[in-house]
Design a protein around this nucleic acid. Structure first.
Length: 690
DNA sequence: GAGCACTGC
């Protein structure tokens, strides 16, 4: 028996700090419903809990679950988060609240860090990580209660977990599921989970007044800047958050805001316009937390901070002190076109749910205002209620591989909350079949099973797995890591020439993949030195990521007994082997140089251009490409020279001419096949003569 | 001769 003053988890007396935090915890809205929650948890296998920001659900509900008595011993509770930082910071907070050491009773697991142990009874982890765990342990037997938090965000991993857990719950009556979400789709969740019990928790936000424009705006950027200036001139003190769509637009807007407010003269307070987007260096991102500037003179008007941000401020980052939100109603969103197998980013109107989330950012510290730069009518008629879930906007090759590995054979009848387009599923199955991950009946092959172990796209896993056969797994590991990291070349607007010159020093004439290999080697040779990075216009964050990813991939290769090897650097075949290995994974991403001088993607027959960032000094007849980007033109980016003969040698099943659209590429391939045929015949005759 | 919303394994 523990006394009430003893910590149940450590057997130690509680610290003073514990009681201090406890008093604060008790003021959170969710505490009023603690008993109600525990009763509902006892009585149901599935529980939906909806609550707005500030209810305290993410930190408190998992602790309430630990108090439930029928959890078994030791109780094992998992709580998912869509983002790593959230998993980390929330678990740290909860460990403090429970008066235990992080990594012991309370821990977290994210891609590059497992901070948990045998003792861990409550673990926060990313949704993608729980999905990985499910691949090794399909019934998730180590857990008694699983909490899916931020379910309304509908990440790919959360959507897959929905369907998976629904099946697991049928097989495991001892497992419980709590789905936590913002309010808007509560009934939809309830229906999906067979009418599960729904509990609502109030949030704790200050009221936000919503203002619409009376007429539609023609130019949202101009309107946004005008609104910033108006707020600054006529509204009481308080910081401004403006949502725009991307880096360039944001930097441009910051310059214009600074200029316009400067032009107003000094009868208004000073402003600090700060950009915010994910590729911004962390030191620059920190600026959003700096206070607004001080008045220009004693007794003068107070200054104002104006944060101009992408959607990152909608979910991932919260900034206190924001009183005014300006929402032009757009964001960049990923869309997938299964016909040409291309994911691209498009500036798209946001959803009502997203508009609601944005306006909420104005009411975190005190009552605020949200200026929507569209009409009220447009809000109610034009905006979709919800953003389409990611599963309906993505290439699903990797997801289908995971589902197959999880033992889900019949994808068409898998219980998706929102099923992906049939075309997308068919495309994914086709790609996996061409790669040899699925047989012709759609069953996972041994190769497919190995591929599923890698946290990579199937094309990349395939090239890694076959790379020992080309004696170059070290090099393919490096290239895979570099392709998985953010772009490594910096090209600041004020130093473009210098940046291009620096990049040219890494160039390999056979292509960008080999250039990436050169950069990585140079980075290692210079001891991963950050100042070397700056001197060479290399992004040090990208390089650190690449090193991390590479280490993880090396561990997986070793675990799977895949050989780590390098060809002799001085051999003529060194780069040829690497290029052949690349092609073994990416034979579906090849373009052919046409007589007109432009490129045509093989089989899909899309007219494309080499992206100007490429490092080739010639236009090869055949190239493999890593990315297809739709911007001002159709570009293929990160390209490497390959030989036509390799196509027919390495991927004859894909370059099957009986099933090939006619055109220049087909005529060239016909000649290559004929050549190979003649070689075979000559070989036979020689053998006979012998 | 150009531009990368945001995550995640």
């Amino acid at each position: 028996m523990h006394s009430t003053e003893m910590n149940r988890w450590t057997g130690m007396p509680y610290s003073v700090r514990y009681f201090e935090i406890l008093e604060k915890r008790k003021t959170l809205p969710v505490w009023l419903q603690k008993d109600e929650f525990l009763e509902a948890l006892m009585a149901n296998q599935i529980l939906i809990l909806v609550g707005e920001t500030g209810s305290g659900k993410t930190t408190q509900i998992p602790q309430f679950v630990l108090e439930a008595e029928d959890l078994g011993n030791p109780p094992a509770v998992a709580c998912t988060q869509p983002r790593r930082v959230a998993a980390m910071s929330v678990s740290r907070r909860v460990a403090e609240e429970m008066d235990v050491t992080i990594g012991e009773e309370v821990g977290y697991t994210i891609r590059f860090e497992d901070c948990s142990s045998q003792k861990t009874v409550l673990k926060y982890l990313t949704d993608g990580m729980l999905l990985r765990e499910a691949m090794a342990d399909p019934l998730l037997e180590r857990y008694k209660v699983i909490i899916l938090d931020e379910a309304h965000e509908r990440t790919l991993a959360t959507d897959v977990l929905f369907g998976l857990l629904k099946e697991v719950l049928r097989k495991r009556s001892d497992l419980k599921l709590v789905v936590m979400s913002a309010t808007l789709e509560a009934e939809k969740f309830q229906d999906y989970f067979n009418g599960a019990t729904l509990m609502k928790v109030p949030g704790r936000l200050h009221p936000v007044e919503i203002l619409y424009t009376s007429e539609p705006e023609v130019d949202y950027l101009e309107a946004a800047i005008r609104t910033v200036v108006q707020i600054h001139m006529s509204e009481p003190p308080g910081d401004i958050l403006l949502f725009l769509t991307g880096e360039e637009e944001i930097e441009d807007a910051c310059r214009k805001i600074r200029k316009e407010i400067n032009d107003l003269g000094d009868q208004f307070g000073p402003v600090k316009a700060v950009p915010l987007y994910s590729s911004l260096p962390p030191a620059m991102q920190q600026k959003i937390f700096e206070p607004a500037p001080a008045p220009l003179r004693v007794g003068g008007l107070p200054g104002r901070k104006i944060v101009v941000s992408t959607n990152i401020a909608e979910t991932s980052l919260t900034i206190d002190g924001i009183v005014y939100v300006i929402d032009p109603g757009f964001s960049k969103q990923k869309v997938y076109n299964p016909q040409v197998r291309v994911e691209s980013l498009l500036v798209t109107p946001i959803s009502k749910a997203s508009a609601h989330q944005r306006s909420g950012r104005a009411g975190r510290t005190r009552p605020g205002k949200c200026f929507r730069l569209y009409t009220e009518k447009s809000f109610s008629i034009d905006l979709e209620p919800q953003t389409y879930p990611e599963i309906q906007r993505s290439n699903l090759a990797n997801t289908v591989l995971i589902l197959k590995k999880l033992g889900i054979d019949d994808l068409v009848h898998f219980d998706f909350m929102d099923p992906p387009a049939p075309d997308t599923l068919i495309r994914a199955l086709e790609v996996l079949n061409y790669l040899g991950a699925l047989d012709d009946d759609g069953n996972l092959t041994k190769l497919g099973e190995i591929m599923s172990e890698f946290p990579l796209d199937p094309q990349m896993s395939k090239m890694l797995i076959v790379s020992p056969g080309f004696n170059c797994s070290h090099e393919i590991l490096t290239i895979s890591a570099m392709l998985s990291a953010p772009p490594c070349f910096n090209r600041p607007k004020d130093a473009q020439k210098a940046a291009d010159d620096a990049k040219a020093r890494f160039s390999h004439i056979d292509g960008d993949h080999l250039t990436l290999l050169n950069v990585y080697h140079a980075y290692k040779q210079n001891n991963e030195d950050t100042s070397w990075c700056f001197d060479n216009f290399i992004n040090p964050r990208a390089m650190k990521t690449a090193v991390n990813v590479r280490q993880q991939l090396v561990r997986i290769m070793a675990r799977l007994n895949l050989k780590l090897c390098s060809p002799n650097f001085n051999s003529r075949a060194y780069f040829i082997n690497i290029r052949k290995a690349l092609l073994s994974g990416y034979f579906m991403q090849v373009a052919h140089l046409e007589n007109k001088g432009d490129y045509m993607t093989v089989k899909d027959n899309q007219s494309v251009h080499l992206h100007p960032s490429n490092c080739l000094d010639h236009t090869p007849e055949w190239v493999i490409y890593n990315e297809y980007v739709l911007t001002s033109r159709n570009f293929i980016r990160t390209v490497t020279d390959v030989r036509g003969e390799w196509l027919v040698d390495i991927a004859p099943h894909y370059y099957d001419l009986s099933n090939f659209p006619s055109g220049e590429a087909k005529r060239v391939l016909e000649r290559l096949y004929a050549m190979r045929q003649r070689e075979k015949e000559v070989g036979k005759i020689r053998n006979r003569v012998k």
